[in-house]
Design a binder for these strands. Sequence first.
DNA 1: CCGTAGGAGTTGACGCATCAACTCTAGGCA
DNA 2: TGCCTAGAGTTGATGCGTCAACTCCTACGG
Lengths: 156, 156
Amino acid sequence: MTETQPLEPEEWEFWDVWMRAQRLLTRELERGLQRTCDISKAEFSVLVTLWQAGRREMRVGELSESLDWDKSRVAHQLTRMEKRGFVERTQYGADGRRAGIGLTSEGRRAAQSAILVHGNNIRRHFLDSLTPGQASFLRAWSEQAVDRLDSPTQLP
Amino acid sequence: MTETQPLEPEEWEFWDVWMRAQRLLTRELERGLQRTCDISKAEFSVLVTLWQAGRREMRVGELSESLDWDKSRVAHQLTRMEKRGFVERTQYGADGRRAGIGLTSEGRRAAQSAILVHGNNIRRHFLDSLTPGQASFLRAWSEQAVDRLDSPTQLP
DNA sequence: CCGTAGGAGTTGACGCATCAACTCTAGGCA
DNA sequence: TGCCTAGAGTTGATGCGTCAACTCCTACGG
């Protein structure tokens, strides 16, 4: 189907520096979040998603969809965050037994401050380092990549 | 020091799609490697690094430096890979007690085939999706990002 | 010769991520 | 009514990744 010759050294090098850049960037941001807010990247994602839902409770399936995480990953993460007091699982519906997920007040505080801090870090380490041209370029590439990679999993 | 206003929704969206693209790409590549070679990304990194060293043994510190991994991460990974039969720890020097790391023949086979397979996947999912202009653009950004993020950790 | 500082490597604990197996409930249908 | 299947959610096992604490050797200084 496709050519099956090994990658050129230059291609490897490209791939390597690309991966390295991503790792350094995410590592830097995650450390910042951890140090200043004592929040992990995974916790941050959950907090933000619930925060955006306002006071409405979400269900595991919704969270899973919106984060594009495995359901079991969500469940594990919620267990840890419930222990930390950031979220609570309540009952869903009148007499049903499904769990609804909501932020505690502690969770709301954490979300609010983390969004500020993390936003600033993103600006400092990423957005501010880009010219407007670079930014729109990267954004276009990202959208193209997501389109290309995300749809094949939609098969029935 | 820096402006402390929250990110614009558009900036969040940019950040989000950018992260999503990376996650989808690395997830796709890691799954391909796992399915076709039964090798994880971490194992792959170690195999390649040792492969590039030829038959010369490396020490943990060298591996750690070259992969830009924490020493303890290297040690844990080597323990797992030793169990799988990919690498072996031998004695280093005449009467010294430091461990030297080498590939087993099994490890060499795995490395060789994984480099081919993974290289092709990188080509399919990443390199082939870029115009030459995009490629040199991304590469330039990566190098710039690595320069910016890597040096601050070099402080004495 | 002793002891002490520092570097190399390992280990343990814990959170993140994924896969497979399990439970529970609801809804459909004989 | 009673079974039975499908979907939602949970749990366990295992590997990855990080931090801190530990061991063991080596080198240096008295």
